[in-house]
Design a protein around this nucleic acid. Structure first.
Length: 988
RNA sequence: GCUCGGAUGGUGGAAUUGGUAGACACGUUGGACUUAAAAUCCAAUGACCAUUGCGGUCGUGCGGGUUCAAGUCCCGCUCCGAGUACCA
């Protein structure tokens, strides 16, 4: 019987579903001691309308292999899947078509599920989550409330209940605690606190809450009608769609993730993540250690605070620069400078983020007319404004040290400000000296003279501290994350407003479900889509959502109109999977389940989530750990980024032929002809008789101008990869059928009537017509072939192009594997003991494959299987002793064929939990080795020699060999290097 | 600019502590089977030279170095990719 992958795969997919083969057990399901848990997770997909292409399952296949391997190794494996089902595309589609996003999302999920099922994943679907399910987002809202009810104690680096903070305020005000809060929070005593009105208290508390409402400058994207987070902006335009982004002030919910900066940074050390990913998070958090200095302003009570990492260069300060948006600017600008400053501020505000970034070279700024006072020398320092100083970083002000910072150097040069030098023996006339090497000594700096950087920094801080004008400070680049979106398809905030102040809906009334709206657009007066809902007011009496007409601001209040961002639901979903569906109502997951499953042992997904999802979920995990909700403070122990699978786009080339008169026909020329014609430096018409005839026929009567063929005469156009075969030949008829715009086009083919296309590797996308669909591959070769091929393609973490041609190789391998267990059409294995070589082949394979799985080197294990099957075929081995363990070995990779063979071997039930074969060294023991015999490091021939031989004996035998004598040609070797079991090298 | 990766045949990619470079697969070529095709099987396949046979020279982006021995280690470059970007 031939290998009928279609029947086999269908059969086993059905079996797995019916028997719930991959359902994970909860600890209480075991009689006696539970099996050790192992949690393998994929980044859950956003179910887009385009469906899956072959790039998506790459990571899923890798994690599935690992999950299946761990089951064979005796673990209780949790390998769930779900959907990140809130999001922009469904809403954009709703705006265009009027269809409810819930409906399109449902359709898309169905399609995803079908596609995933065909690949044979061992997912436990009984635990599926969807972020848009009210039963799920009830807990997203619950976490939001917990954040609102918390503040951060920087002293012990822990989040605590807000009630605790209130009692601290009541007893001692806010001066003695080290709580993370907004920069502009005023200081108050206990009695002042008591004297505040309830509303004032609420406003102050908002400065401390871990999620807070604040007027923030946000990244507003007019085209998308929403605010974007920093990580949703790439090169100054929106990640989705590439629309321009501008700065705008809006009242927004924010997350005080900055409070967790230090923990997010130090926690990285214990994670088994790739160095590059950790590096990306480190840079994003951007810790810098330095000092915060206070500069008095002449003739003013105000101070300028500036952060610096180089307090040792304090004597090199010759001016100050404020960000144009800095609050002090209007206060201190002198009447003479007022006009110039205002013009500058206006111009700076107009420059979009993108322009500012693109144009770093142009130096701009304006003098305010005011002077600050140097804290040590008391010299006046002119105060400038310049847009190279960012309002959002540090204090929005810098002490400019032109000798030590290139930007300050450029600015000083441009505006003719002096550049005092504080480095001993360094020439700073051309450029600043920014090195922090301790060997360079500080000069012209009073008490710092002669010190290296490392000694000078603490000394400088000490001196400034004595004056009350500076202290050590750690600064982070990480900004608080804006949490409001002006969108419909997201989690509603469990928030209503009393006198403009936010109140939380009590937990027991959650979820607050998303209301219906008649249109998914913002309202005419610019409110978010929820502003269109008729029933969107909160009745505090009945604790229900009621009609807006009932709003009286006494018992019925308006609800929040924004919704939460995409990362809300994905920040905690991993913990939801830990609990079974029917026990999820009362909590995120039961304590017992959280304790048992702990955290994700292996997480696989794309590196594009480095500074978004992966940072936010670490933040929420730490927070929920502080609260005692979670027993862990990191969500993902080990993380692997799978590389992107790229598409091989196909191009046809339109000939922009040069004519006397009109140009009206669409003519495409085979790539092979173009290339050769260019190489031969001839006219296309002279390429060959066949080509000339075609041209005459198409361009009947047209007079071509003579010129040599050049690539600039052709414009490339994408064509769908499905109409191109593995040899790059285009099926012209099919192309005309699927793309009517080619209907009347002419195609100039080579002598054999073939038309070849050009190829280029690009990102796989619909617009490039290079998408390969996994369904098609499963149809043509089967899921096991798809799985093996995706792994065979190359290292998991590396980007690589998809090349359909290679699929037949792994498919052939499966056929060969099948044949090992069959004699002609008959299933046939022998009960005879296996030969020595067969056992050696098997154990060699066990050893290598086990090692490869542990190293996530799946490409090499596929090769190993190929070698194994090749060898066993050669040996004509069909012994059960070999073939049984082989089926288990390969089952994580090609589960369908493995199940089928296992059944044919006479077993009932799934192969999935059969013990993984154990490696035994004794089968690999060799008594001889094929030694490479090298001369001066170059291998000349090999010799089979016993491994028992001593070094001397080896040398004797090698030297006696006639080939050795021939190589030496009468010379006496200077030296003979012998590494037993490895190599013989003769020098001389 | 900075940080992190990477560069090996026609192609995707192997190569454990430095120890036979190019495993495995694709592609290509030749052969067997077949009326023919497909499928299958066998053989060859880094480049160059030699060829009746034995064989030889070069070769892992470039230039140096360490070593009996370097794809692997060290120094200096080039190019490509990713992330990040006026962060004081």
């Amino acid at each position: 019987m031939a290998y009928d992958y279609k029947a086999i795969e269908q059969k086993w997919q059905k079996y797995w579903a019916e028997h719930q083969t991959f359902r994970a057990k909860q600890p209480q399901d075991f009689e006696g001691e539970p099996k050790p848990p192992f949690y393998v997770l994929d980044m859950f997909p956003y179910p887009s309308g385009a469906g899956l292409h072959v790039g998506h399952p790459l990571g899923y296949i890798a994690s599935d292999i690992y999950a299946r391997f761990k089951r064979h190794k005796g673990f209780n494996v949790l390998h769930p899947q779900g959907y990140d089902s809130f999001g922009l595309p469904a809403e954009q589609y709703a705006i265009q078509t009027g269809q409810h996003p819930a409906k399109t999302t449902e359709t898309n999920i169905k399609r995803y599920r079908e596609q995933l099922d065909k690949i044979g994943f061992s997912f436990d679907w009984s635990r599926e989550v969807r972020t848009s399910d009210p039963k799920y987002y009830k807990w997203t809202q619950w976490i939001f409330i917990q954040l609102f009810e918390s503040w951060y104690d920087a002293d012990v680096q822990k989040s605590k209940a807000i009630s605790e903070l209130i009692s601290i305020f009541e007893n001692q005000g806010n001066s003695k605690i080290d709580a993370v809060c907004d920069e502009d929070t005023p200081a108050f005593s206990a009695s002042e606190w008591s004297a505040f009105s309830e509303e004032q208290k609420e406003e102050i508390l908002l400065n401390y809450r871990l999620t807070y409402l604040a007027e923030t400058e946000v990244n507003w994207c007019p085209a998308l009608g929403t605010v974007l987070a920093n990580d949703e902006i790439v090169n100054g335009v929106s990640e989705r769609g590439g629309h321009p982004v501008t700065r705008k002030k809006m009242k927004q919910w924010s997350m005080r993730i900055s409070a967790f900066a230090e923990r997010l940074l130090s926690g990285l050390d214990n994670l088994d993540w790739s160095e590059s990913l950790k590096e990306t998070q480190k840079n994003w958090i951007g810790k810098s250690v330095g000092a915060q200095l206070k500069f008095n302003i002449k003739n003013s009570k105000s101070l300028i605070e500036a952060f610096t990492t180089r307090p040792d260069t304090i004597y090199g300060v010759s001016f100050m620069v404020l960000a144009p948006e800095h609050d002090l600017v209007t206060q201190i600008t002198t009447p003479e400078q007022k006009e110039e400053v205002e013009v500058y501020i206006k111009a700076a505000a107009k420059r979009s983020e993108r322009e500012r970034m693109a144009d770093v070279k142009t130096i701009t700024g304006a003098f305010t007319g005011a002077y600050a006072e140097h804290p040590l020398t008391k010299e006046p320092l002119p105060i400038w404004i310049g847009d190279y100083v960012l309002a959002g970083y540090g204090t929005g002000a810098v002490m400019a040290v032109p000798c030590g910072d290139q930007r300050d150097h450029d600015f000083a040069n441009h505006f003719g400000i002096s550049i005092p030098n504080v480095f001993d023996g360094i020439d700073i006339s051309q450029e600043a000296y920014a090195d922090k090497t301790n060997a360079t000594k500080i000069a012209n700096s009073d008490f710092l003279n002669g010190l290296g950087v490392l000694e000078a920094i603490p000394k400088a801080i000490e001196a400034l501290q004595k004056l009350g004008q500076g202290e050590k400070k750690v600064n982070y680049r990480l900004r608080d994350a804006v949490f409001s979106r002006q969108r419909y398809w997201g989690e509603p905030f469990p928030v209503y407003y009393v006198n403009g102040l936010p109140k939380m809906i009590d937990e027991k009334h959650l979820p607050l479900e998303l209301p219906e709206v008649e249109k998914y657009l913002p309202t005419e007066d610019g409110a978010p889509p929820l502003g269109r809902a008729n029933d969107w007011a909160w009745d505090t009496k009945s604790n229900k959502v009621v009609s807006n007409d009932k709003t009286d601001h006494k018992t019925v209040f308006p609800l929040e109109l924004n919704t939460m961002p995409g990362w809300a639901g994905s920040s905690w979903y991993l913990f939801r999977y830990m609990e079974e569906q029917n026990n999820r109502d009362q909590h995120i997951a039961s304590e017992k389940a959280l304790e048992y499953w702990n955290s994700v042992d292996l997480y696989i997904g794309g590196s594009e989530h480095a500074t978004g999802h992966l940072l936010y979920s670490r933040f929420w995990t730490k927070f929920l750990n502080d609260k005692g909700v979670l027993p862990v403070n990191e969500p993902f122990k080990k993380l692997i980024n799978q590389g992107m699978i790229l598409g091989e786009s196909a191009f046809v080339y339109r000939w922009n032929y040069n004519v006397e008169g009109e140009n009206f026909k669409t003519v495409f020329v085979s790539k092979s002809i173009i290339d050769e014609s260019i190489r031969n430096e001839e006219m296309l018409i002279n390429y060959s008789e066949s080509v000339a005839n075609q041209i005459y026929k198409i361009l009947d009567g047209v007079q071509l101008k003579s010129s040599k063929t050049q690539s600039s005469h052709f414009s490339p156009l994408h064509v769908d990869v499905s109409v191109v075969n593995a040899s790059n030949q285009l099926d012209i008829e099919s192309l005309k059928n699927i793309k009517p715009k080619f209907k009347d086009a002419h195609f100039i083919t080579n002598e054999l009537g073939k038309f070849t296309v050009g190829r280029e590797v690009e990102k796989m996308s619909k617009s490039k017509f290079n998408v390969v669909n996994p369904d098609d591959v499963c149809e043509e070769y089967g899921a096991d072939s798809l799985r093996l091929y995706e792994m065979f393609l190359g290292p998991l973490e590396q980007a690589k192009p998809w090349n359909t041609a290679g699929l037949s190789g792994v498919h052939n391998f499966l056929k060969k594997l099948w044949k090992l267990y069959h004699d002609g059409d008959q299933f046939s294995v022998s009960e005879e003991p296996a030969s020595k070589e067969a056992l050696k082949t098997l154990h060699k394979t066990i050893k290598k494959v086990t090692q490869d799985i542990e190293d996530f080197s799946f490409n090499t294990s596929v090769s190993t299987f190929m070698i194994c099957v090749n060898e066993l075929s050669q040996q004509k081995c069909n012994s059960r002793e070999i073939l049984e363990p082989l089926a288990v070995l390969i089952s994580p990779y090609a589960p369908h064929i493995a199940e089928e063979l296992w059944e044919r071997l006479g077993h009932s039930g799934s192969i999935s939990e059969v013990q993984y074969p154990l490696f035994d060294e004794k089968y690999l023991k060799e008594d001889s080795k094929t030694y490479p015999i090298s001369f001066n490091g170059k291998m000349r021939f090999t010799m089979d020699l016993s491994l028992d031989l001593s070094k001397d004996k080896l040398e004797e035998i090698v030297m006696a060999d006639e080939r050795t004598q021939k190589q030496l040609d009468g010379r006496t070797p200077k030296k003979v290097i012998i590494v037993p079991g490895k190599i013989v090298n003769i020098v001389g």
